[in-house]
């Protein structure tokens, strides 16, 4: 089963970040990671109890689902339209 960020209301990643790099986008409701503010301390990655903040091995960047700024590509490209975004 594909598991992606649950965009928690009281998010652990936001609590763990000491640099205000994780903020909620009021339009989409998603918690977005501002890469410019991220200092790569790994606190959010450790904090997420669902394991949904990931460390990209090649670039060393931390990534999490931001609902593609309101147009999730996973849902768009899902061939059987099992994934829906409403």
């Amino acid at each position: 089963m594909p598991i992606t960020c649950l965009q928690c209301e009281d998010a652990a990643c936001v609590k763990a970040c000491q640099y205000n790099a994780l903020t909620r986008n009021e339009k989409t409701g998603a918690i977005e990671l501002n890469e410019k503010k991220c200092v790569k301390c790994s606190a959010c990655l450790g904090a997420c109890p669902f394991g949904n903040v990931l460390l990209e091995n090649n670039s060393g960047r931390f990534v999490k689902c931001d609902l593609c700024l309101g147009e999730p590509m996973c849902a768009k490209f899902c061939p059987s339209k099992t994934l829906e975004y409403k």
Partner: peptide, 20 residues
Amino acid sequence: KSGLPEEYFAKCDECARKET
């Protein structure tokens, strides 16, 4: 620092995803 339980941090993301 975050006031979250230590168990949150002492779990690898693969196991966390599996549990979810």
